[in-house]
């Protein structure tokens, strides 16, 4: 689980070009959107593709993403329960 969280942090920084952040800057319970990392709706679409590509989880409704992408902890938990790869 903690490996997954670490992996997610690295991938998100890389994928979303968050140059000003390092893995240490992101706490497991930090909000990813809004005041936390400041991600937006376009990032949500990027993260949905990451879920599909890396973990075999297909979301079809962007609104589903809102719940899942709350924080690294919530996201990792969702992936553990639903991953197919």
């Amino acid at each position: 689980m903690s490996n997954l969280k670490q992996e997610l942090k690295e991938n998100i920084i890389e994928l979303l070009n968050l140059e000003e952040f390092s893995v240490e800057d992101i706490n497991d319970n930090d909000a990813l959107f809004g005041d936390g990392l400041g991600l937006d709706s376009i990032d949500a679409l990027e993260l949905m593709v990451m879920l599909d590509k890396d973990y075999g989880i297909k979301l079809t409704d962007p609104n589903e993403g809102k719940e899942i992408f709350q924080s690294i902890a919530v996201l990792a938990d969702y992936i553990e329960k639903n991953r197919s790869k």
Binding site: I42, L45, E46, V49, D52, K53
Partner: peptide, 9 residues
Amino acid sequence: AYLTPTSFI
């Protein structure tokens, strides 16, 4: 497959 929107936008 696996296309993301940022570069399109």
